[in-house]
Design a binder for these strands. Structure first.
Lengths: 125, 125
DNA sequence: CTTCAATATTCTCATTGAAGAATATTCCTC
DNA sequence: GAGGAATATTCTTCAATGAGAATATTGAAG
């Protein structure tokens, strides 16, 4: 995985927000919508971009898609994710996302094994 | 300094190479040319880009320009520079740059107080 | 004040990518 | 298999940016 490609993935705010959330664990698209409050097409396209470049993996679960960070991550990616986690504290958007994210997680129990309990709750509730 | 802006600066290979070199210390444009082996206009424009975004500072010294990392760096920048330094090891271009950089430094003594001794040697030698 | 060396700027061209509207796909439920 | 929910894709438009050629600027030296 080329370093420049990683930075290309990181140089859009929406993608940063997505990755920031994924550091905490897998998430499905409808929850991204809840948390980021951005139009569906926008989120979907950025997820597609990240996937094409190997920064996230996707798994279908009923008619939801669960996105997660790749299980096996090259060193450069790991380093940059750690760096990102360290940096986001300084900007408000990320803190607000984290707050909404916490609420979502609260509804589903602390460590949300994604697919399983996501499937129990439809997204438009 | 906005995080996204930092990543925008990092998402071009030439700029990465420039920053990688600057981590070791200040450098003038003609040495960038020696080391990067890229056309003058290309280097100059990327240096300009980095400067506009606050990732480097410039100082004139006779008719050379000395570029350096900002003396006071916000946390996010510092973190990303550290991360960069950690990541470049995996790619050949950076190692080659580092090798040529070492030669340049060897010609001018180990810690090159930039301006002073740079000024003693013209760049086209 | 002319000339030369070092560096920056302008202009043009081509590519990339972000955004939104509309439409398509996929899977579930009945 | 029809309908609906969740997500993806296509198309168009627009702005940003990278590269290179040519030209301009700035400073030093004679």
């Amino acid at each position: 995985m080329e370093l420049v490609k990683i930075y290309e993935c990181l140089c859009d705010r929406t993608r940063l927000r997505i990755l920031h959330l994924l550091i905490e664990g897998p998430l499905c698209v409808c929850h991204f919508q809840d948390i980021l409050r951005e139009p569906q097409v926008k989120i979907s396209k950025h997820l597609g971009y990240l996937k094409r470049h190997g920064l996230v993996e996707a798994e279908r679960c009923a008619n939801m898609m669960i996105y997660r960070l790749p299980t096996k991550r090259p060193r450069q990616l790991e380093a940059n994710l750690a760096c990102l986690q360290d940096c986001v504290e300084t900007e408000r958007v990320f803190r607000e996302d984290a707050a909404r994210h916490a609420k979502v997680r609260a509804r589903f129990g602390p460590d949300t094994p994604a697919c399983v309990r996501e499937a129990g709750a439809s997204c438009d509730e």
